[in-house]
């Protein structure tokens, strides 16, 4: 799959069909997921606010998943010096940062009615916030270096360093939280199929939306590179 798509021309031909198809799938999944979300019964403890779960949990899952995608793309671009992998890493960063911010914002909106506060220094929230800082550092480094190949390689090194650090950050924050007697914990409602089906649909829908947007952004990045190359040639001629 990787080897087949590593050819930019084959990738362009594939993504031209795949991006809208996956996007349409995402739309159908999200629409049916939202339908089930609003037709699900109220939770006996949380009331209607339980519906926040269906837009919050998939965002948190994608925040991590997109970082894994970034790390894989960075590894491929660093080791094989492949331009397409670099474009994929670059295209991934704003999406991942957005999903992380979305997870934090929907978490705050859910926390306000449930815990009575927008923010607690809970282990999950804090490690999510550090993840957002990592995304911002990646984007900042990438945009601060003018030479594009150098910027791509420096950013790839940072992405891999962050990937090694992410589990350490997570466990250190968990340890910090237990040290300080964390006050809040999630009340999990597991086993209820009313909630499982919309959650699964929304998770798949978010993932498909991410995949489709990622393909579109990679295509845009490749077109942008081609355009700047042509502009350079025209200026030389």
């Amino acid at each position: 799959m990787f080897a087949f798509l590593a050819n930019p021309q084959r990738f362009m031909a594939f993504s031209k069909v795949a991006a809208p198809l996956i996007g349409a799938t995402a739309f159908l999944l999200l629409a049916s997921g939202l339908w089930l979300t609003f037709s699900a019964p109220d939770d006996y403890q949380q009331g209607a606010t339980v519906r926040m779960m269906f837009i919050h949990v998939p965002a948190a899952w994608l925040a991590l998943f997109s970082y894994v995608c970034l790390a894989v793309a960075s590894f491929l671009s660093l080791v094989f010096r492949h331009a397409l992998a670099d474009a994929a890493a670059k295209a991934c960063a704003p999406l991942g940062a957005t999903f992380t911010a979305l997870a934090l914002i929907t978490g705050a909106l859910w926390g306000q009615p449930m815990w009575g506060t927008w923010w607690v220094w809970d282990a999950r929230l804090t490690s999510m916030l550090v993840l957002l800082l990592l995304w911002l550092a990646y984007i900042a480094l990438r945009s601060a270096i003018d030479d594009e190949t150098k910027a791509g390689r420096a950013a790839a090194i940072l992405a891999l360093v962050g990937a090694i650090n992410l589990p350490i950050i997570h466990y250190s924050v968990v340890w910090w939280n237990t040290l300080h007697e964390g006050s809040s914990s999630f009340m999990k409602n597991t086993g209820s199929s009313h909630y499982l089906a919309p959650l699964a649909l929304m998770a798949l829908g978010y993932t498909a939306a991410f995949g489709s947007l990622w393909l579109v952004r990679i295509r845009a990045e490749l077109y942008r590179r081609r355009a700047s190359l042509l502009a350079l040639r025209a200026a030389e001629a």
Binding site: L133, K150, V161, I168
Partner: peptide, 23 residues
Amino acid sequence: ALALGSRRGGLLIAVIVLPLFAP
């Protein structure tokens, strides 16, 4: 080392390094 050759080195270093300082 990562910020070498970039514009606004000092601020960039802080932004890169602070999340890594968390643990």
